[in-house]
Design a protein around this nucleic acid. Structure first.
Lengths: 229, 229
DNA sequence: ACAAAAGTGTTAGTGTTACACCCATGA
DNA sequence: TCATGGGTGTAACACTAACACTTTTGT
């Protein structure tokens, strides 16, 4: 199917032989727990990096779309299916995998903490800012994902993909703060959220302790990440 | 080198066979001509899509970094080496190439029109907003690149990669306008550029016709794309 | 003198930031 | 009544957008 000319197309620069590649899809799955932003990791069951923590992911099947593979590996590592998934970046350093040439088409995924399932024993949630040493270049992939997520907070409604059906504004603010890594002004935050018109009060409220109950909000268009501003 | 377990890792979801893939790097090379934004295309010398216009690019060699491959294919199609290149997106629909499964790690590149070389006969510049029908999914790739470029004008100094050593503010404004596809206010544009502090007057000026000569500017830190605002 | 593009400031409006107190509840 | 987090408005500032005339040159 592949003509010899295709494999030697680049005669101008000398002999360049096109390779056959393994392609992996690795996924950075974030969730917002009570106190911190967490990332799903799995212990690698095989060499190389046997027993080392790594991102969920693995080889792409021959007829599989990229995002479908990312979702399949996530499903396997966590039992989860309905998630927000987007392509992040493709990591392809020739020496990134000691077994040979493997590209990784990394994806960024978000999970509502409340809809998590019980994890298989080899998977666990880790605090996003205190990860163990990861296999391969997975540490770099997580950093890239964190930057992307923080950047997207500024101009999209992506953070809502981390929120449950009903939530308070303080809860939403806490999620923003754990992603951005710093405190936000309460009044300004609430003004901005209202201006975006992406959430609406349900009318209900939630008693959360020895203090005034908080209004509950819901997402106006769930499942839809809008670009704003 | 690849254990059988690796190729059949996903037992939970049934038999999934990891494939071997061809990987291409295709490049959307933009340049700012006098009147319009242009994209470099090449005529495919081989089936499929024999004789059809396509993006410069081709298969990745076995030990080659992704960006290096993008630069190699550009060099071959245009004789050009010193360019701005960044990864754009990875296109991987299983049916995107009739020959079989080929992923394309698309790149966005920028060239100063003044430093173009003479093209080989199979390559040509086309107006970015009036392209012919392209091979494969290359039309979609160009659209993605156009969106990325326009978005990056808003928060980075990437447009300077399209400018020659010395240029006038009107020239720079024309480049912004051809990317964004609409007119900008002259005074506001100049104010913004000055605020960014990414260019400086050379002291020289340029006589361009029956009118007042324009001051020439240069880039303060050439080769460096800054994120601003 | 005319045509053609270069160059230049001000104002109104909009969005952003900083900041402090009262409210409703449970213990 | 006290502790706790929920909820609210305003003023200064910065940024953006709209807008028109004078300058310098070549013909």
């Amino acid at each position: 199917m592949w003509a010899r000319e295709d494999e030697l197309e680049s005669l101008a620069t000398g002999m360049v032989v096109a390779g056959d590649f393994k392609v992996a899809t690795d996924v950075v799955l974030f969730t917002a727990r009570e106190e911190d932003l967490a990332v799903l990791l799995v212990r690698r069951p095989r060499p190389p990096f046997d027993g080392c923590w790594a991102l969920p992911g693995g080889l792409l099947a021959v007829d599989e779309p990229l995002e479908a593979a990312a979702r399949r590996w996530l499903d396997e590592a966590s039992g989860l299916r309905k998630l927000y998934v987007e392509q992040l970046y493709t990591f392809g350093r020739p020496d990134r995998d000691p077994r040979g040439r493997v590209l990784s088409v990394a994806h960024l995924a978000l999970l509502r903490w409340q809809s998590r399932a019980t994890l298989p024993s080899e998977a666990a949630w880790w605090p996003a800012r205190a990860l163990p040493v990861l296999a391969l270049d997975h540490g770099e992939i997580v950093q890239t994902a964190l930057c992307r997520l923080a950047a997207k907070l500024q101009y999209s409604t992506i953070a809502l993909q981390l929120m449950p059906d009903r939530f308070t504004l303080s809860h939403l603010q806490a999620v923003y703060e754990m992603i951005l890594g710093g405190p936000l002004d309460k009044r300004n935050f609430r003004k901005r959220m209202q201006a975006l018109r992406c959430i609406e009060p349900t009318g209900e409220s939630w008693r959360g302790g020895n203090h005034r109950p908080a209004r509950l909000y819901r997402i106006r268009e769930p499942g839809c990440v809008e670009i704003v501003k």
